[in-house]
Nucleic acid binder design. Structure first.
Lengths: 142, 142
DNA sequence: TTTGGTGCAAAGGCTTTGCAGAAAG
DNA sequence: CTTTCTGCAAAGCCTTTGCACCAAA
C-alpha cells in the first residue's frame, strides 16, 4: 500500500492509520494526535499532520473539508455525505447514496467544468438535542 | 436595518456592505478589505472582520463556510448553491433551486435532527480551464 | 548505506481581541 | 453625555516547515 509511492511503513504511520480506521467518527488532526499518543506518547503533532496529509494525497484516507475551522479525517475513501452538529461540530456519515445526476444538472447552469459535489447536512446531534447545550459551540469534536 | 439591534450606521459599515453588494463574487475578508480600502484607506482589517461578523449574525449578509482555509462572504441572504474552482478557489453561484426534500430524506437515515443542508460543487472555472494553471492552487480568490 | 521520516520548536496564515481614543445617537 | 465603534497591535488557533538526528529498506 505504501510501497508504490516510496513511502516507508513506519510505526507512526501504522498507528495513525489504525487509530483512524478504528473510529467511525471523523476526528480532527488534534483528536487523532490524542488517540495515537496513548499508544506512542512521544509522537509529535507535526508527524501526525504530515502523515495525514501524505495518506490523503495517496488516497489511503480522506481529508474532509466540512465547515468549521479544522479539517477532519476519514479512514475510508468512498464518497459519502456527512452531517455536522451545529452545536458541538461533531460529524457523522449519512447513509445516502451519492446522486451524480446533480453534477450534470449543475453543468447546465455554469461555465465551470463541474467535477463533483459535496453535500453536507447540518443538524443537532442526539447528545446536544434538547439540552440547549451551548458549551461546545466551537470545535468540540469527535 | 441596523437600528433594530442597537447597531450604529457607521461609515465603515456602510462602505463594507456597499462594496460587498456591488460584486457577484464571494470575496474573502481580506478581499473585502482591499476593496473597501480604495474608498477608505485608513480602515483596519479588524474592523472589516468585526463588521462582517456582526452583519452575518444579524442576517444582513451571509458568511459562507465553503471549503478552503478562508471564509467567504455573500451580500445576499437567500440560500443557494455554490461552485468552487479547485485550481484558484474562486467561488460562484449555481442557479439551481435548493431541493429541500433531501433534508427529509436524510432525516430518515440519521439520529441527528436535520436542519438544513449545503451543496457545493467543485470544478474548474473558465479562467483555469485548459490552462493547466497551477499557480493559484491556494487562496487566489474572487 | 541511503533515503525518507521523526521530534522539536519556530514560523505562517487567517482571525479575534484588548485597549484607548473617536464618533454616532 | 453615553455607548458603541474604530484603529492598532498583540495574541490565538490551527497548520506547516526547517533542521539535525533516526530508522526503514
Amino acid at each position: 500500500m505504501f510501497e508504490a509511492q516510496n513511502l516507508r511503513l513506519t510505526k507512526q504511520r501504522q498507528i495513525i492509520l489504525d487509530e483512524l480506521r478504528k473510529v467511525i467518527s471523523h476526528p480532527t488532526a488534534d483528536e487523532i494526535y490524542q488517540m495515537v499518543r496513548k499508544r506512542m506518547p512521544k509522537i509529535s503533532l507535526g508527524t501526525v499532520y504530515r502523515n495525514l496529509e501524505i495518506m490523503s494525497d495517496c488516497g489511503i484516507i480522506q481529508k474532509l473539508d466540512v465547515g468549521g475551522t479544522q479539517k477532519r479525517f476519514d479512514g475510508t475513501v468512498e464518497n459519502h455525505y456527512h452531517i455536522r452538529c451545529v452545536e458541538c461540530n461533531k460529524v457523522a456519515d449519512i447513509e445516502m447514496k451519492p446522486n451524480h445526476k446533480v453534477d450534470s444538472e449543475a453543468q447546465k447552469m455554469t461555465s465551470f467544468e463541474v467535477l463533483r459535489h459535496r453535500l453536507e447536512f447540518m443538524g443537532i446531534c442526539p447528545g446536544c438535542k434538547g439540552t440547549g447545550n451551548n458549551k461546545g459551540r466551537k470545535n468540540k469534536a469527535s
